[in-house]
């Protein structure tokens, strides 16, 4: 491309260098954008816990930037045994086998026990009470079917660029997943 535009002032060495660097900067930005945009997936990413890797250490309850952690316990009903003697619900060696607060394992009483039919009970998590401490998850994994597990609840999570819980997670269970499939649910295979 030739340009025969009459310049008002001759281009000095300094100006020429500056113009060249300006173009180079713009090209550099374009190249960076191009290189990074070349990657296949461009889905927005959100944080999620891989229940297979989680070791129920309890850091989810304490390390979230929110006052009330965005991590909550969820119940996989298809895996749950609906046991009368639920280790996720009751303390080890409880004073009595009933719904008294002194017998419950959950520190906030967030597990709701409902009678279904003899001898089965349905256990549901009250998310407004759950603090994501994973005490029930651990007990259910050790003594039960492992139907209780932790998940990042996306109606609460503010999706920090670096999740504080992920930075503290000792097992590397926190992952960036596609926002199109934001949960890693435990289901019956």
């Amino acid at each position: 491309m030739t340009q025969d535009k009459p310049d008002k002032e001759p281009m000095g060495r300094r100006k020429f260098l500056k113009e060249g660097m300006w173009g180079a900067c713009l090209a550099g930005l374009g190249a960076t954008a191009g290189l990074t945009a070349r990657h296949e997936s461009h889905a927005n990413l959100v944080w999620q816990i891989d229940p297979q890797v989680c070791i129920q250490c309890g850091k989810c309850a304490t390390h979230c930037v929110l006052d009330e952690s965005a991590v909550k316990c969820v119940q996989s009903y298809a895996i749950c045994g609906y046991c009368d003697l639920c280790y996720g619900y009751l303390k080890p060696e409880p004073p009595a086998l009933d719904t008294g607060a002194e017998n419950e394992l959950c520190p906030t009483g967030a597990i709701i026990r409902t009678f279904v039919e003899d001898p089965y009970f349905d256990y549901t998590i009250d998310e407004s009470l759950c603090i994501g401490c994973a005490k029930c998850v651990k007990a259910c994994a050790i003594n039960g079917n492992g139907s209780l597990y932790l998940q990042v609840r996306h109606d609460r999570c503010v999706n920090c660029n670096e999740c504080s819980i992920a930075a503290a997670c000792p097992s590397g269970a926190f992952k960036r997943v596609s926002a199109a499939q934001p949960y890693l649910l435990k289901e019956m295979e």
């Binding site: 229940p51 996989s76 009903y77 895996i79 609906y82 003594n143 079917n145 492992g146 999706n159 934001p182």
Partner: peptide, 25 residues
């Protein structure tokens, strides 16, 4: 994970399994 120590029951009273809610981001 998901070990079947206690096989999930077959309910007779027409109980339907609730599904785990997944609020969208």
């Amino acid at each position: 994970w998901g070990i079947e120590r206690f096989p999930p029951p077959d309910f007779e009273g027409g109980y339907t399994f609730p599904t785990t809610t997944t609020p969208a981001p």
